[in-house]
């Protein structure tokens, strides 16, 4: 049974079409990264998956069950971007509350709380109230509360927003532990490096549509073929660099000229051209395009815009 099938989902809010016919399928044990700028339709799509938004057309099925059915809800764990916790309850009490809301009782609930505290490395803070925890610990508790019923599909919505690098690493480890345990994961983020590290496939959403889907390598190849990015930084900002770069098929961002090349042999003529134009080069970098480049190429925007 396919964990998640999204078929031609459309959702409108008045004049605004938030999701414009998205179709996606996520196989078992996969980790799908959902990338898109703000307002691209990610949140509406995720809320359709968890049954909190009713699509105008199309369908969402969880292991074959309609998304808003009780059977589907039991299979899904949702970790919202907001810290959806009870601030005056302790970590253990929060987990107990959300466990009971998921129908857990007795030993099953106690075991689930124990597992969650271990998984989130919160066992030593189990008796602390949520509002007294640091931002990173609260993020981890927020994740644990979404997984208290041990769902087979987990939706993580920007789980690392506002946390320090150390806590972020801890969250990566938690997600990797889930993935290694066989949980199907859908992960939305603004951070390309997170998607590159954690996700085995990526869907890029813009204007309510999936505009690209595949592994990182597939996306780069689809967008750039075998081409590489040459970044040329200059000693000083000289007028005319943008015109000169454009004449050779490049762009200038923050004073750095970017060119796309097929072969290393194409770099030498660029350097010669710069010297002829009187632009003194300080540094030249050659690298394969990454997801950021793909995103920029496909949407015309930075991911964090």
């Amino acid at each position: 049974m396919v964990p998640l099938e999204i078929d031609s989902v459309v959702k409108r809010f008045g004049e605004l079409t938030a999701v414009a016919g998205v179709s996606l399928e996520v196989r078992e044990r996969a980790c799908l990264g959902l990338l898109g700028p703000n307002g691209a339709g990610k949140s509406t799509l995720i809320r359709s998956i968890i049954g909190r938004v009713r699509p105008d057309s199309g369908s969402v099925r969880i292991f074959g069950q309609p998304a808003n059915s009780a059977a589907a809800r039991a299979e899904i764990g949702w970790v919202p971007q907001d810290l959806a916790l009870y601030g005056l309850l302790t970590c253990r009490e929060n987990l107990d509350a959300f466990g009971r809301y998921q129908g857990l009782r007795g030993k099953a609930l106690r075991d689930a709380i124990h597992w969650c505290l271990d998984w989130a490395a919160l066992a030593d803070r189990a008796g602390a109230t949520a509002k007294t925890l640091s931002g990173g610990l609260r993020r981890r508790l927020n994740m644990a509360a979404g997984l208290i019923h041990r769902p087979r599909i987990v939706l993580l919505d920007e789980p690392t927003v506002g946390v320090d690098p150390q806590s972020r690493n801890r969250i990566f480890e938690m997600v990797e532990a889930l993935r290694n345990g066989g949980t199907t994961i859908i992960y939305t983020t603004h951070y390309m490096e997170e998607a590159e590290r954690l996700c085995d496939s990526i869907a890029i959403i813009d204007h309510g549509r999936v505009i690209a889907r595949g592994t990182k390598e597939e996306l780069v190849t689809q967008s750039f073929g075998g081409r590489s990015d040459v970044a040329m930084r200059f000693v000083a900002t000289v007028p005319g660099i943008a015109v000169w770069a454009a004449s050779r098929g490049g762009t200038v961002q923050d004073g750095t000229a970017h060119f796309s090349v097929d072969r290393a042999a194409e770099i030498a003529p660029l350097l010669d051209g710069a010297a002829e134009g009187g632009y003194e080069v300080a540094e030249v970098t050659v690298r394969r395009p990454n997801l950021e480049s793909v995103f920029l190429q496909l949407t015309g925007r930075e991911l964090r815009q």
């Binding site: 009780a70 810290l83 809301y101 129908g103």
Partner: peptide, 13 residues
């Protein structure tokens, strides 16, 4: 406001 309502209603309640 905190999102807990969404979380609760996305479960079995």
């Amino acid at each position: 406001e905190s999102g807990a309502l969404d979380r609760i209603l996305s479960g079995r309640v």
